[in-house]
């Protein structure tokens, strides 16, 4: 892994677009600095030899149990009750096309 250069403001803007986060200019700048620092810190682990090492996700040994194919009813009214906006029993959003 090569040394990370300081994140550019453009890179931060691109990420904010990808993450769908509206940021103010000052948020953008402070995040630019802080992310650069965190990533620079991370540079240290580049030296750890990880050849042939599989990335670890679930850290403990857990036996897999799948779910039987059985339908359980759920009171969807409780779900719809939280909708910011709806039409009948449908979620309403700004036009998507």
């Amino acid at each position: 892994m090569s040394k990370t250069e300081k994140l550019t403001l453009q890179a931060v803007q691109k990420v904010s677009k990808l993450a769908r986060l509206k940021l103010t200019d000052s948020e953008m700048t402070s995040i630019q600095n802080q992310l650069s620092a965190v990533l620079e810190n991370f540079e240290q682990i580049a030296q750890v030899n990880t050849d042939e090492v599989r990335p670890l996700v679930t850290p403990t040994e857990i036996t897999q149990v799948l779910r039987p194919d059985v339908v359980e009813d759920f009171d969807s009214e409780k779900i719809l009750a939280n909708a910011p906006e709806k039409a009948g029993r449908l979620f309403k959003v700004p036009p998507v096309v």
């Binding site: 994140l7 990420v15 599989r54 996700v57």
Partner: peptide, 26 residues
């Protein structure tokens, strides 16, 4: 969210998330 999105974004996954997961195992 910004840091995580960056770390998973295309071109950085191996250097960050994947590498972190490998060192995590060690």
């Amino acid at each position: 969210i910004m840091l995580g999105t960056y770390a998973l974004s295309s071109g950085y996954y191996d250097a960050y998330y994947s590498k972190a997961g490998q060192v995590r195992r060690l």
